[in-house]
């Protein structure tokens, strides 16, 4: 038996293999860099609009209403209210607020809503899907755990999510945390189905049987052997989930049920701008474009991850 190291496949960890494939995918790379830019701007936005107020999104300057992008403040505006750098990069809105500063602040809000909401939905989805997939055959009275959980999931899926969220938001006190919670609580169904399907197929794999035969405790089998193998598709759907959470939040804000003012989000900048489409198109165009880019970027990255993580598409 020749066991020369040369005779074997070059040592490449799954991670290296993943990187190699992901790097070749230009669309996904583009999306990835857009997201990096967004991440940086979200963190910088939080820091520069709230902690060290370089860009103040809340200053109202009635003398500088509806200035287009790249315009300078009018001479009669108060010197203390002048924007950083002496220029309105993205113009001003109907109250003379700096759109750039508001977009900057909004990027953090949008991104954090996306991540927290998806975090909540992943938590619920993995838990319920995992329970259903692993302990599905256990009977409670006359129905199995699997039936119970999956029929509940189906019932949740029956509702048009957006209207369900809209109703819940209208009934609850408006705040950014309520929005995060509600979007998370109403979007875990896809994840639960994914995880259940993965668990059902992984449970029958020989390596799980082997772990059982070795007397490895059930909890360890689930978390060490099954979850890591089930997570790849979940991760992909989570990436796309962030995009749809951001979109949902924008939609809610646009309809006036979103994050309450004075917190700026892309959705309510858009919503505020909708009355002035012809007078001040940048109020509409800038947040709309930003939402479009971010959602596109998340989707491209999600697709790229799907390709790179799917072992069937890999060249062996």
């Amino acid at each position: 038996m020749s066991l020369d190291p040369e005779a074997m496949a070059p040592p490449e960890t799954p991670w290296q293999e993943f990187l190699r494939i992901f790097r070749k995918d230009y669309q996904a790379l583009f999306g990835f860099w857009v997201l990096m830019l967004l991440l940086v701007s979200a963190l910088a936005g939080k820091a520069l609009t709230e902690w060290w107020v370089v860009f103040d999104p809340e200053v109202v300057r009635l003398t500088d209403k509806f200035l287009p992008p790249f315009s300078v403040p009018s001479p009669d505006s108060l010197p203390t209210d002048r924007p950083f750098g002496g220029i309105y990069l993205m113009g001003t809105d109907e109250l003379g607020r700096d759109v750039f500063a508001r977009m900057f602040q909004g990027s953090f809000v949008s991104l954090s809503i996306g991540f927290v909401a998806v975090g909540i939905s992943l938590g619920i989805g993995i838990l319920l899907g995992g329970l259903s997939g692993f302990y599905g055959h256990v009977k409670l009275w006359c129905i199995t755990v699997d039936t119970l959980i999956m029929r509940f999931t189906d019932a949740m899926m029956c509702f048009p999510t957006f209207f369900l969220i809209l109703t819940a938001v209208a009934l609850l006190p408006p705040s950014i945390y309520t929005i995060m919670m509600i979007i998370g609580l109403f979007s875990w169904m896809g994840t639960a189905r994914f995880v259940r399907a993965e668990f059902l197929s992984i449970r029958e794999q020989d390596y799980v049987t082997a772990a059982k035969a070795l007397g490895i405790p059930e909890g360890r089998i689930i978390f060490r052997h099954m979850v890591p193998n089930a997570l790849a598709p979940v991760f992909v759907s989570a990436t796309i989930g962030v995009a749809s959470a951001i979109l949902t939040e924008s939609g809610l804000s646009f309809l006036g049920f979103g994050v309450p003012p004075p917190d700026a989000t892309w959705g309510n900048i858009l919503s505020d701008g909708k009355g002035f489409i012809f007078d001040a198109p940048w109020l509409f165009f800038i947040p709309g474009m930003a939402i479009f880019m971010v959602v596109l970027a998340f989707n491209l990255v999600g697709e790229g991850l799907r390709e790179a993580l799917n072992p069937k598409l890999r060249s062996r």
Partner: peptide
């Protein structure tokens, strides 16, 4: 005290360990 060896060497080892 009792163990098993499987048929398919591709599915009997956890790919992530």
């Amino acid at each position: 005290r009792m163990q098993i060896i499987f048929q398919d060497p591709y599915s009997s080892l956890n790919p992530r360990m």
